[in-house]
């Protein structure tokens, strides 16, 4: 297993201080089909050798196509999935192997904002109960009524009228529901929020509002974000750095502008070409489709080769024989490619 030498957070806002979250050589397996009827299920490696640091108050955008493992990475950091290999250190504590009680305690510091604001709020709970729930669960208040003032404060924080406190979520629009979800995530004053495509289910017109709100909250409360998205244009707006995932591996990680202006990895370049350009005079060239995603069986077989080598224009013999490791290119750029 290759591990990163040295710190990865150089050039980020809080460089020098200890990072809030460091992930080293993380691997996650899912259960695959059984080889024998009574045998144990085979393992499919969905995340392989992921390493990064996240500073306090920083936003790291995680970008990749469907199935690249970006949401899985978020859930692994939340410790909702078993870790097959590697280490996760959060706020100075190793959280790689936590018992159930420890994982529940961890939820005070790491919270999550979900993709779908319609199904992530219990339809039978009022706004008050929804937002007060984390406070009740962690024994901060006895009942939702006791938390009424705190909840009202949280509603103000996310720019929702306080009169809505006794309403059920079905009367709200998607953007408003997502604000409720954000208020709920904020209730425990977490240090890290994992945002799993928080705006992709929203109307384009309200995406900016929600993203701006998240930025304002970050400036006010000093939260770090792990911002998962498949859409580079939203991510560019909010992220300090961006990590590109491809089939369970990180292929490139760099500062926001560096990625956009000088994509190093061929896959990053392909993704960027797919972003629609509003000004017809600035064409980036025709988007090329990335190579088709492999079926589950193929993923297991891939073994040594670079997972992008099949559809990559720059692929050489070396790419097909040996998977590239992340190596440092420049002050704040890491790339996993032999040819870049």
């Amino acid at each position: 297993m290759t591990h990163f030498p040295g710190p990865l957070s150089a050039g980020t806002p809080a460089s020098g201080a200890a990072p809030l979250l460091s992930v080293r050589g993380l691997a996650v397996d899912f259960d695959g089909p059984r080889k024998k009827i009574w045998g144990p299920p085979s393992k499919i490696r969905v995340l392989e050798d992921i390493s990064f640091d996240l500073a306090r108050g920083e936003t790291l955008g995680l970008v990749g196509e469907s199935g690249s493992g970006k949401s899985t990475l978020g859930r692994a950091v939340l410790r909702r999935l078993p870790i097959a290999d590697g280490r996760i250190v959060f706020d100075g504590k190793d959280i790689t192997h936590l018992p159930l009680a420890g994982r529940r305690a961890l939820s005070r510091d790491i919270q999550m904002v979900f993709q779908d604001p319609y199904t992530s709020l219990n339809p039978r709970m009022k706004v008050l109960d929804l937002i007060a729930e984390p406070l009740i669960v962690h024994g901060i208040v006895e009942s939702a009524e006791e938390a009424r003032d705190r909840v009202a404060e949280l509603l103000r924080l996310v720019n929702l009228p306080v009169e809505n406190i006794d309403r059920f979520p079905h009367g709200f629009s998607g953007g408003q529901r997502q604000r409720i979800g954000i208020a709920r995530a904020l209730a425990l004053r977490p240090k890290l929020i994992i945002a799993d495509e928080p705006v992709s289910a929203l109307d384009v017109s309200v995406r900016a509002q929600v993203v701006n709100l998240m930025q304002d909250l970050q400036a006010e409360l000093g939260i770090s974000y792990l911002f998962v998205a498949h859409d580079l244009s939203i991510v560019r707006h909010i992220s300090d750095r961006i990590a590109i995932l491809h089939r369970g591996r990180m292929v490139e990680m760099a500062g926001c502008d560096a990625i956009y202006d000088r994509p190093a990895h061929p896959y990053t370049a392909t993704l960027l070409k797919a972003v629609p350009e509003p000004d017809p005079r600035h064409r980036r060239g025709t988007p090329t489709a990335p190579p088709p995603a492999p079926r589950i069986g193929e993923l297991v077989m891939e073994g040594g080769a670079c997972r992008y080598s099949k559809g990559c224009a720059k692929a050489t013999e070396r790419c097909r024989a040996e998977a590239p490791v992340m190596s440092r290119r420049g002050r704040d750029r890491w790339v996993a490619c032999w040819e870049a």
Partner: peptide
């Protein structure tokens, strides 16, 4: 469904999830 996952992420135990 995501709201059950949300409850788990918030730190709810199985008993509270089933009851509430």
């Amino acid at each position: 469904t995501p709201f059950i996952e949300a409850a788990e992420v918030l730190g709810c135990g199985p008993r509270r999830i089933l009851q509430v």
